[in-house]
Amino acid sequence: MSQQSINAPRPGDDEENASDAVTGGQTFASAQGADDLLDEIDAVLEENAETFVRSFVQKGGE
């Protein structure tokens, strides 16, 4: 468990990949990116989540 890959992403939960988020500025930029993404998700999320979830009914398959 000791070998850390050179490609491995860094700690934190919002950077795009390992090459970003090296400096504070870039970290801020990608945190901003995560915020933008959440805004977008809020915009696209089904208006009435409860009704949507309730109406998502499938038959079993396979």
Partner: peptide, 24 residues
């Protein structure tokens, strides 16, 4: 709802598609 919409395959609707587009 986020869990279900994660896998929505319609362009612009699927949340995984948004993650991919954002390079995440």
């Amino acid at each position: 709802a986020i869990d279900l919409q994660f896998s929505d395959l319609r362009p612009g609707r699927g949340l995984f598609g948004k993650l991919r587009a954002a390079g995440q």
